[in-house]
């Protein structure tokens, strides 16, 4: 039944706003409130972004002249500062992703394996490992900045007072500055992945392990040949969502290191917002966000396909 026939037909029962079965407009009335906001604040901004990135958008100028793909070309012209910083901060972000994602998968899996079998205080431990994830990035960032403070941070205090190690100026040393960011991020988000792994582990039939045990498989063999393969779909999902989250690194760097020293921990989103809100180069920043969006699209499409697959399964 199409919307068109609905409008042509004389209103049989009351007005077109009647919420009974005979009114074919009912589903559309239900969708309408969401659809209005969806168009204004989700669909329109994407199109508007394309317009902004192909014009020179200046809040103070009377006209916004069309410049075509100039801002996109700038990103591929090595002589512009935009291309220099954009690709450099993108590499920083990829570095962070390459370091943090394996950690976030391995630690999550380790915690889930520790908690999978019943143990005293299991609910408590699960709650503790998940807890940091509910905090705002602001709280998490300030906490870890203090933990890794160059002189009196707890990490340096423990290193020097208890382990006899030298104090390291984590926050202001190239490469070392990544340590608080990565450690903080693992602490902050590993609980999500752990929860997903715990759910998946709960679905592995216990009989499989018992059969393998009878066949003389040791615990490593059981892990290697039963647990890991059966967790593969979960691992794929966890990996994709974690990569997506890591690529969007922003608050951790901004708060813990401010992107320093000398931009070595600046993420690409940080640079895009700097270009927009500090340099007032809104068009250039929008062009960057679209290029970066395309880089991310590889992973978002993957995530989307996994979700769609699961949903089809769930419908039957």
């Amino acid at each position: 039944m199409s919307a068109r026939t609905a409008q042509e037909r004389p209103q049989r029962k009351g007005s077109i706003f009647a919420l009974n079965e005979s009114n074919p407009l009912v589903p559309y009335l239900f969708l309408l409130p969401h659809a209005i906001f969806f168009f204004i604040f989700t669909v329109y901004p994407v199109g508007y972004g394309i317009w902004i990135s192909t014009h020179r958008w200046d809040p103070l100028a009377p006209t916004q002249p069309y410049v075509g793909l100039e801002f996109y070309r700038n990103l591929f012209d090595p002589s512009t500062p935009q291309s220099q910083f954009f690709w450099r901060t993108l590499l920083n972000t990829l570095f962070f992703t390459a370091v943090s994602v394996p950690l976030l998968i391995a630690v999550a899996l380790g915690l889930a394996l520790l908690l999978h079998r019943p143990i005293v205080g299991r609910a408590f431990f699960r709650a503790v490992f998940f807890m940091p994830g509910i905090l705002s990035v602001a709280v998490m960032g300030i906490l870890w900045k203090w933990m890794f403070e160059n002189q009196s941070g707890l990490v340096n205090i423990i290193a020097s007072e208890y382990l006899g190690l030298p104090r390291l100026p984590y926050l202001t040393t190239e490469w070392l500055a990544w340590v608080p960011i990565v450690v903080g991020t693992v602490w902050w988000t590993v609980g999500f992945n752990m929860t997903l792994y715990l759910a998946a582990l709960g679905n592995i039939p216990q009989a499989l392990f018992e059969a393998a045990e009878l066949d003389g498989a040791g615990s490593w063999a059981r892990f290697r040949h039963i647990t890991l393969p059966l967790l593969a779909p979960t691992t794929l999902f966890v990996a994709v969502t974690t990569v997506l989250a890591s690529l969007q690194l922003f608050g951790q760097s901004l708060i813990i290191t401010g992107g320093g020293p000398t931009r070595t921990t600046q993420s690409v989103i940080m640079y895009i917002t700097e270009e927009a809100f500090s340099n007032n180069q809104f068009s250039s920043a929008t062009a960057m966000s679209f290029v970066f969006g395309l880089v991310m699209l590889v992973f978002t499409v993957l995530q989307f396909r996994i979700m769609a697959r699961d949903m089809q399964g769930g419908m039957r």
Binding site: F41, T42, P45, G49, A276, F282, T286, S289, G293
Partner: peptide, 13 residues
């Protein structure tokens, strides 16, 4: 599939 950063600046404007 649209990352938040893509709509951040248009929404701000």
């Amino acid at each position: 599939m649209v990352p938040g950063i893509v709509t951040l600046i248009p929404l701000y404007i």
